[in-house]
Simulated assay, not measured.
Amino acid sequence: MLPEVLLVSAPGKVILHGEHAVVHGKVALAVALNLRTFLRLQLHSHGKVNLNLPNIGIRRTWDVTSLQQLDTSFLEQGDVTVPTPEQMEKLKEVAGLTKDCANHELLAVLAFVYLYLSICRKQRTLPSLDITVWSELPAGAGLGSSGAYSVCLAAALLTACGVIANPLKDGEPVSRWTSEDLELINKWAFHGEKVIHGNPSGVDNAVSTWGGALRYQEGRITPLKRPPALKILLTNTKVPRSTKALVSSVRSRLLKFPEIVTPLLASMSAISLECERVLGEMAAAPALEHYLVLEELIDMNQHHLNALGVGHASLDRLCQVTRAHGLHSKLTGGGGGGCGITLLRTDLEQPQVEAAKQALENCGFDCWETSIGALGVSVHSATSLDAPVQQALDSL
């Protein structure tokens, strides 16, 4: 039986190495970011389905009886990789969404309605429930916020409908599902991501499901042996960018200078593989020497990314500021602004870290001290959440 309240969380992600090179068949390493999305699900008998997404100002309510009477046979998509435009329009109609809805609202609500109806439609009656999703992840920053959202929804709905068992035992603060159940969560979350993004790679939901680190190459996703939770500074330059345009610019540079850019991409792939090797060693016995190698790899990759033309003055400033404090940084994701990561060695004193954070904030950047290699999707007891998270959920 479900507890009175089901609490689920899932991490965001950052690309550690291999951004842009991965588009051209090279290796990328993605790691779970310990900024998390939290979901609270409560079953009711009030005949309503309530969705509350306070980060983006959404509250939606549907009548269960009305949803029960809808023809949802169109949700039987089989192996279709992307919902067709016709299916998306039907889903909007089912969700009661109008064309004047803001795009972020439309997609978040559509993903929920799709997963709720698809997962729960085989129940004798659709469940009445309240769902609140609150996130530490900024939306649209390339940190996998939609992947974490989809994973939380899939895990909670599959558990609420009894498709998978709740793994949390009495007295446990946190627990995880079996590997088989995680595979199912990941599958459904990927479908949710398709509703939001059309044709995603599957990396974001995979990292959010499994946690730790994974290698991605030409559609193949391979979880790595869990590395230690490396401490980082995550910095958002708040400079908007178009990943699509940046990917296109790299492709153009490759076509224009193939003998220059092809070796760059191969070198970036080699950086990813070397980082994977070092992380494997650190899983057994992390040492300061490992951190020094990781810093060298960060510097080399950042120079390669600048050579590809995806740097930005804001990211140069980020690297300069952290270098002045003895730290090493690189962009993460598409580049052209967006976010960067800074490795924090184990020998750093906290005043040194605080000084670097203050200097970055003085540049107008947002900065978080967090970690990578975090735990994947998990279920929590009501008393196990950190006080700020619990207060945020209780206030909604």
Rank of each mutant, 00 (worst) to 15 (best):
M1R: 12
P3D: 01
G12K: 13
A21H: 01
F38S: 09
L39Y: 03
Q42K: 14
G47L: 14
L51A: 08
S66E: 14
Q68F: 11
Q68H: 13
E76F: 09
Q87Y: 07
Q87G: 02
M88C: 12
M88V: 14
K90H: 11
L91T: 07
E93V: 10
D100L: 04
A102W: 02
E105G: 11
D130Y: 11
I131D: 01
W134K: 14
S150M: 10
N166M: 00
G171M: 03
N186L: 09
K194S: 15
S201M: 07
L214Y: 04
E218G: 04
E218A: 13
K231V: 00
L233Y: 06
S252E: 15
L254P: 02
L273F: 06
L279N: 11
M282E: 05
P286A: 05
A287K: 11
Q302C: 00
Q302D: 10
A307Q: 09
G309K: 12
H312A: 14
L315C: 03
L318S: 14
V321W: 01
G326L: 00
S329W: 01
T332Q: 05
T332N: 03
G334K: 10
L344R: 10
A355M: 09
Q358P: 01
A359D: 14
N362P: 00
F365W: 08
C367L: 06
I372M: 11
V377D: 13
L393H: 08
